[in-house]
Structure formats: C-alpha cells, structure tokens
C-alpha cells in the first residue's frame, strides 16, 4: 500500500496554449520543458456557417478531425500545467474555442522568415481577449529581425511582451513561459488596482 495516507486531495490543472505557423517549432518547444514525451491527441471538430444563429438547424454542417500535440509539467503534487500546441492549419483556428477556454494565456511563436504565419493566431487571441506574448524563435542562434521590427510588422500593442528565445533550449523555453505568467499576473493586478 502507498505510504501516503490519502490520495483524495483536490487536484487541478491549468494550460498554456502554444500557437504559431506550421513548422515553427511548437512541438520542439513543448518537448523541451515537458516531463513526458509530447503526445498527440485528436478531436473531431464541428463547424457551421459563421454568423448563423442556430447551428442545430443546419443540415450540412461539416466535421473535421484535427490533431494537436501537448506536454505536461507537474507544478506541485496537486497542480499540473499542460502545454497544448495548436493544430498547424490556421484555417481551423476559429474552431478552437475549447482549446483556449480557461487557458492562462498563449505563446505565439514567430519565425521571422515567415511572419505572416502567425497573423491568424494573433487575431484569434485578440478577439478572444486571451493574454498572449510573442516569442521570436531564433533558429541556429540567428535572429533575423529585432523585437521592435517584429512588433511593428505585426502591429502588436505596446503592452504585449515580445521576447526572443530558442525553442530547443529548456532554460530559454522556461523563461518564455515565466514571462507569460508574469505578464498575465501583472494584468490581473492592474485590473484589481484600477
């Protein structure tokens, strides 16, 4: 038998969403800090015409299967943090309400050689009012643009953090997650103090 007297303690979980274009390194980022090898899960998503009042009335709604990778970090015995990578195909973004519901916030991974790939994710988080930060992945230690250039190019509001990092490096990834949580906490404190 277990030495622990009780295993009925309240367990809770939290999640951070990792977004960005296809091939930007989302799974690499998740894998660099996850305590498990990143897993892939599939969900069947239903979509219907945007702007239509009652989807139950629509006979030809479509379903599609989307896959996402995720990892896990045990924060303490009763709190588990999950990192969910968004599906690569940005055209499925609008279906990902469940993915962002209740999330702490999101990391938008940016490859400066393909800046436009992250537009959809930024729009989505802005629309859903989910806090996010921009993380510029420096492939091979190279940074092609300065943070301010990226901020200007993507029209990122001045309060949203823009950081550079290396997705393969655990310390670097950890720092990105820390920056996001610090940002979310500071936003909450501002709102409370207002």
């Amino acid at each position: 038998m277990s030495a622990r007297p009780a295993t009925t303690g309240r367990v809770t979980s939290a999640k951070i969403v990792i977004a960005g274009g296809f091939g930007v390194g989302k799974t690499t980022l998740v894998g660099s800090v996850s305590e498990i090898t990143p897993l892939t899960t599939e969900a069947i998503m239903t979509s219907a015409g945007v702007g239509v009042d009652d989807t139950r009335q629509i006979p030809n709604k479509t379903t599609t299967t989307v896959a996402m990778d995720f990892g896990r970090i045990s924060i303490d015995r009763d709190l588990i943090l999950y990192l969910f990578g968004t599906p690569g195909q940005t055209r499925f973004w609008f279906m990902w309400d469940e993915l962002v519901r209740g999330a702490i916030g999101a990391v938008v991974m940016v490859d400066t050689r393909r800046l436009a790939d992250c537009f959809a994710a930024i729009d989505f988080f802005e629309h859903r009012k989910l806090p996010y930060l921009i993380a510029i992945n420096c492939f091979d230690g190279m940074q092609y643009h300065q943070a301010q250039d990226v901020r200007d190019a993507l029209a990122i509001p001045s309060d949203v953090p823009v950081v550079s990092y290396d997705a393969r490096n655990r310390e670097s990834t950890k720092q990105v997650l820390i920056s996001l949580v610090e940002y979310v906490l500071s936003m909450r404190r501002q709102r409370v103090g207002a």
């Binding site: 924060i75 209740g102 702490i104 949580v181």
Partner: peptide, 22 residues
C-alpha cells in the same frame, strides 16, 4: 481544470503557484 477567465483571487493564487513552479 481551473479557469483563469474570471479575475478572482483563486486564479491569482494559482497563477502564483504556476510561476513559482516554473
């Protein structure tokens, strides 16, 4: 899971736990 959508003390306390855990 805990939802962070509401700006309540429970969420803030949990965020602090996440931060120190990270």
């Amino acid at each position: 899971p805990t939802s962070f959508e509401n700006n309540d003390a429970v969420g803030t306390e949990l965020l602090e736990r996440v931060l120190s855990g990270l």
